[in-house]
Amino acid sequence: MTTPPTPGHAPPSPAVAEELRIAIARLSRRLRGLRGVPPADGSPGPLSLTQFAALAAIERNGPMTPRELADHEKVQPPSMTRVIAHLEERGLVERTPHPTDGRQVRLTVTGAGSALLATERKRKEAWLAQQVALLTEEEREVLRRATPILDKLSRS
């Protein structure tokens, strides 16, 4: 659903939308690439993007059933079952009884899961802060002012 332009304002050119899409995709790829490096001791390496997204969704939204998580992440339940199994094996999520439906379970993030998410977020924020520090003061001000607008676009 598109909103018509406000009276007196021309719609943005398609080039603006394309440039914004490319820049956001490129930045997103860079941030995703900053995931943890596999340890040398042979212990499990970093989570896949799907595993990380599922873990973050549970933390952000609170306890969820496996079906709610699959719906939220827009994946098929069998795929989510494998993701959940991996997160459980790593001790990052745990199953708890559903408070009103004995046939279901809810997934909650463990302390280890929260710690892993915090570490990954700090790594990405540190990299981003380093990149922002390389910008001019004027560029940083433009970003400061654009951030709420980008957030608005991401929620629409």
Rank of each mutant, 00 (worst) to 15 (best):
P39M: 09
P46S: 14
P44Q: 09
G45H: 04
A53D: 15
Q51N: 13
G33L: 02
L31F: 02
I24N: 00
Q51M: 10
F52S: 13
A23R: 05
P44A: 15
R32F: 04
Q51T: 11
S28Q: 10
R26C: 05
P46W: 05
F52A: 14
R21A: 08
R32V: 04
Q51K: 13
R32A: 13
S43W: 03
G45Y: 01
R21Y: 01
Q51Y: 03
L27C: 07
L47K: 09
P38K: 06
A54R: 14
S48T: 15
L34G: 07
G33N: 05
P39K: 12
A23F: 00
L49A: 14
P38W: 06
P39W: 10
V37S: 09
P46A: 15
S28M: 03
G42T: 10
R29E: 07
G33T: 02
P39N: 09
R35P: 02
L31Q: 07
R29D: 08
S28H: 11
L49R: 14
R35W: 01
A40L: 11
I22W: 02
A23N: 02
L34I: 03
A53Q: 13
P38Y: 06
S48I: 11
L47W: 08
A53R: 15
R26V: 10
P38A: 13
A53P: 03
L47R: 08
T50V: 15
I24H: 01
L31C: 02
A23Q: 02
I22E: 06
G36I: 04
P46R: 14
R26F: 05
S43R: 15
S43E: 13
R30K: 06
P44T: 10
A40Y: 03
R26P: 00
G33I: 02
Q51V: 03
R35C: 10
A54D: 15
A25E: 08
P38N: 03
I24C: 04
R29V: 00
P46D: 13
A23P: 00
A25N: 05
A53E: 15
L27S: 12
P39V: 10
G42R: 08
Q51H: 15
R21W: 00
G42M: 09
R29I: 00
F52K: 09
G42F: 09
P44K: 04
P39G: 09
A25V: 01
S43P: 08
